[in-house]
Amino acid sequence: MDPPAGSVEPDRSGGTGSAPDTRYVGLATRTIAFALDAGLINLVAVIVGVGASLILSLLHLPGTLRTILAAAGGAAYICWAVGYFVVFWSTTGQTPGARMMQFRVLPVGDEQVLKPRRALLRCAGILLAALPLFAGFVRILFDSRRRGFHDRLAGTVVVNAPQLGVAATRRASIRAAHAASGRPPTTPPAMGP
């Protein structure tokens, strides 16, 4: 069940230099980020694929073996693509595309980052949401927290994570440390007599 609109998400930046705010990210921004990630994944895959093809072209392998290698390459591509999202979501909560667009995937609840299992579930959710002509993503437009099918499946929200300046990052980390210790931040002593 969705919380009332306007509910405030806790600050769970994890001290990584950016702080998520309470604004949930919409479809357009997430699509751009996904396109950037897809471009990066395919760029790496093409470079590796071209390299492998050049090497294999010198070996004169039989046709059957080429088919097996192509299937292995396809499996490696799927592993690479899934691993890309799972690793980034479960470590920083941001893929490179999400970092570029300054948002973060966070689990609903008290956890700081997504667990790999839930990240894998979210990955599968994206596939399932795309199957019926991307109908799973349409829900983002009508959900009070802009959650798609995959977000609801994995229990995640996508929130803004603006990159703070050096001084603001330092202040935020000091505030977070004080909040963790339960003591209010102390003001520096006044200069002079």
């Binding site: 990210v25 919409g26 479809l27 357009a28 921004t29 751009i32 437009l141 802009r146």
Partner: peptide
């Protein structure tokens, strides 16, 4: 791009 995409988020959502 970020600023425009945020605006697009709101616009698409309002239209839908």
């Amino acid at each position: 791009v970020r600023a425009r995409s945020r605006t697009a988020d709101d616009w698409i959502e309002r239209t839908a």
